[in-house]
Design a protein around this nucleic acid. Structure first.
Lengths: 162, 162
DNA sequence: TATTGTTATACTCTATAACTATA
DNA sequence: TATAGTTATAGAGTATAACAATA
């Protein structure tokens, strides 16, 4: 339990943060240029496209993507205005809103996906061996699951009322 | 050269993006709560605190942290207004602005650092073995260097005039 | 009473373009 | 002419708090 991170931890932390920052920036440029989408919007559409009946409730949709309910309402409103999703009441729970991706929405995802993949491959995967890829995937999945399980911080803030 | 990423690449990519998103969010919460700083502002102060004479030119300071010149001017203005840095002309090149961190600025970094380290350790390093840490550090350093060297996208946009 | 979602509002961050001044 | 930095401005994203409706 030292006060500071050890030098190797520090280097790793900074390398991770800078690399992902560069990756995020490149991905957002590509999505904006080729599909007029932010990364958050892309994530929302991609989730919907992969959902059982191409629809999810707002709460399900928010999970892991957005950190405030109003933020999701705002983004869903933008996607709806663009004709990429529709919103309607849920028959099961009248409080819920069902968000459904439209054909245009699916088409938009399909349109940006190749470029997205190209950027991810060119920046992230090109310099990695199969062995590296496997190690990185294993490590980050473990880290992600650990982070999801952490109660203290915002990850679970959806639950907070006040 | 397939069109899509292979499944393992896709999982790795999403795990990386989600984990870092959670980490970024947690770090920004901590920096804001304990030091009223954004992550970008923290990075700028940390760089200045580590610089030879605790000062850098705007261009040096921007490198790798910010993607537009005006963005840095804005952030430097905020830091100056908060008394954490001072700005003055460079004696060597009259076009340059030298940004110097103040004692208050150094104190602010010192104030938030323990909490920052606590968050990084709790979220990122706790679930990793020494072996994992070493592998992650090696991989991300390689990825970062590869990304820095990529010309096409925004990483080098500082150079662009028009 | 707790949960789902929206609204209104305010704030921060970022980026583009036009501009000044120096090399 | 090219570079360093600022300004003005506009747009996007995000979050808080107050609110309405349903469970």
């Amino acid at each position: 339990m030292a006060d500071a991170l050890e030098p190797e931890q520090l280097e790793t932390y900074f390398a991770l943060m800078e690399a992902v920052s560069l990756l995020q920036h490149a991905v957002e440029q590509q999505l904006r240029a080729e599909g007029d989408l932010s990364y958050v919007q892309f994530q929302l559409l991609a989730r919907l496209a992969g959902a059982p009946e191409r629809r999810l409730t707002m709460t399900e949709l928010a999970d892991g993507v957005v950190y405030s309910r109003s933020g999701l309402t705002h983004q869903a409103g933008l996607l709806e205005k663009a004709g990429l999703v529709t919103r309607g009441p849920s028959p099961e729970d009248q409080r819920s809103t069902l968000v459904t991706i439209t054909e245009d929405g699916v088409a938009r995802v399909d349109k940006v996906l190749p470029g997205h993949v190209r950027v991810a491959r060119g920046l992230l995967f090109d310099p990695l061996s199969d062995r590296d890829l496997h190690a990185l995937g294993d490590i980050m999945a473990r880290v992600r699951d650990h982070m999801r399980a952490q109660p203290p911080r915002s990850a679970a803030s959806r639950r907070r009322a006040t």
